[in-house]
Simulated assay, not measured.
Amino acid sequence: MFNLFKKKANEIACPMDGEVIAITEVNDPVFASKAMGDGFAVEPSNGKVFSPIVGKVTSVFPTKHAIGLLSDSGAEILVHIGINTVDLAGAGFDILVTEGDAVDLTTPLAVVDLEYLKEQEKPVTTMVIWTNSEGKEINVQLGKSNAQTVIGKLK
C-alpha cells in the first residue's frame, strides 16, 4: 500500500518543539566550533524528543544524554540533549528506543525533564550534529519550529 507519510531519506526534522538556532550560536565551544560536526540546535519548549531523520538507532549513551542515529542516506547523526548533561548520569532522562531500532520522523526517542536539568544548572539546548559531515552541507530553516516538522535536507 502507498504510504502518503513516507519521508525521504535526506530530510531532517526538528526533534523538539522550540527555537531552532545555528550550531555556531550554541553556548558551548565544542559544539559552536563544529568540532564534533556540523548541525543545528534547538532551545526546547518541552522535553519530548523525536528522531530528526529516517534510519536506525546506532547507540544510546549509558548516561542517556545522547543518542546516535544512522540515516537511510548514510548520515551519522548525534542527538545531544543539553549541555554538560553527561554529569547527571542519566537522571532526568527517559529513553524510549534501543540500539538497532528503526526510526522515522514520528518516532519518540526520549522524554527529558527540562525543569530538572534547569534545577541542576544544565542548559537544555539540544544539538543535532552530523558527525560525518566533512565535505557535505546541512541546511535547515532557523526560527520557531515544532517537533517532527521537516526543516531541511542533508546534502
Rank of each mutant, 00 (worst) to 15 (best):
P108L: 08
V60N: 01
I67V: 14
N84E: 15
D72T: 01
T131C: 11
T85A: 14
I53C: 02
L114S: 10
H80S: 02
S51N: 10
N84W: 12
A89G: 10
L69P: 01
D113V: 10
I81R: 03
G74H: 13
V54L: 07
I81A: 00
G37E: 03
W130D: 02
E43N: 14
V124K: 02
G82N: 10
S33R: 05
I83F: 03
N139I: 07
H65K: 10
T131W: 09
Q120M: 15
V112E: 01
V97H: 08
V86G: 11
E43P: 00
P44V: 05
E119M: 15
G135L: 07
Q120K: 15
N132V: 05
A32R: 05
H80R: 10
E134G: 11
P108A: 14
N132Q: 09
T107W: 09
V103A: 09
P108W: 07
P123Q: 06
G55C: 10
D87L: 14
K48M: 08
S51W: 00
V54I: 13
L88I: 14
G92K: 06
V57H: 05
V86R: 11
Y116I: 06
K48D: 09
T131F: 13
V128F: 09
P123S: 12
I81S: 03
I81G: 03
H65L: 15
I138Y: 02
K136C: 07
D104H: 11
G135V: 13
A66M: 02
V49L: 04
N84T: 13
A89Q: 15
W130F: 15
G74C: 12
V54F: 05
G135K: 05
K64I: 06
I77N: 01
A89E: 15
G37C: 11
F31K: 01
G100H: 14
T125Y: 11
F61T: 04
T98G: 13
I129W: 04
G74F: 07
T85E: 08
V86A: 12
F40L: 10
P62V: 12
I67S: 04
L117D: 06
F50G: 05
Y116V: 09
E76G: 00
H65F: 12
K118C: 01
G100C: 10
A41I: 01
F31D: 01
S71H: 07
K136L: 06
G39C: 11
N84K: 13
S73F: 02
H65Y: 14
A102F: 09
S71P: 05
E43C: 02
A110Y: 06
G37S: 13
F61S: 08
K48G: 00
I81D: 00
G92Y: 00
T58E: 10
E137L: 08
I95H: 13
E121L: 13
E43G: 00
V128M: 04
I129K: 04
P44L: 03
V54T: 13
M36H: 03
A32D: 10
E76S: 06
V97G: 11
S33Y: 11
L105W: 07
E115G: 13
K64F: 13
K122G: 02
S59R: 13
I129D: 02
S71L: 07
F31A: 04
S59P: 01
D104I: 09
T107S: 15
L69V: 03
